[in-house]
Amino acid sequence: MFEARLANGNIFKMIVESIRELVVDVNIDCSTEELSIQCMDSAHVALVSMSLSQSAFDHFRCDRSLSLGLNLPNVSKIFKMMGRDDTMVLKAEDSADKLMLMFENDKSGTIADFELKLMAIEAEQLGVPDTAYKCSISMPSSEFQRIVRDLQVMGDTCKISCTKEGLKFSATGQIGTGNILMRQNVASEKEEDHVTIDMEEPVELNFALRYLNFFTKATPLSPTVILKMSPGLPIVIEYPIEQLGHVKYYLAPKMEE
């Protein structure tokens, strides 16, 4: 029997919204420790890795590890019926062939419950190696979203280079070139406005802006975003969910022909 109760159901809704355009049919893996998702997009260019700890839930029971095969666009439709302040309850029997979702509104006392048929999804588990990245940048997630949106006007590829000058985002296209340089900023009072750049060695990589734009759907989950890069490796873009978990995106670089 799997049963989990999340007082702030909106967190789970935001997680679904942050990945449903990138990965459609996913397994939500339930263990005694956490709910997690690890899934690549159909082109195998991006990987989503989500984790939400059992400590995020007011009640969490998982007798046996389960994989809940779901179509995220369908799950997203059901979450449209959840109120902002609703409590969310997930429930599935061990012989999981369906998932129960319940939304409880404490104020009005209404309870909505939905049943989703589960799918059997062949999951290819990927070995994501632990990497000591050469550059790690923490910045306001809204800033990253704005940069990605603005540079999409200039072209379809973003060059991200981390040097001692700072972190530079560049895009070149028909109409010209755009560069946005961010420097370390730990002066402002608001922690959330800080930009911290840890650079062990300079790194310069190119990425498809279309994917970076998909990733910024996770912006509502976290005021900060963490970018980690090493020469010639996929970038990791991490949106921490307070201390409760994260949504991480890995993106393969575009290589010089």
């Binding site: 590829t157 498809a208 575009k254 022909e257």
Partner: peptide
């Protein structure tokens, strides 16, 4: 022109 690589080159399938 830059060619898009894919993750299979970086992450081994378990």
């Amino acid at each position: 022109q830059k060619r898009q690589s894919n993750l299979d080159a970086f992450f081994g399938l378990k």
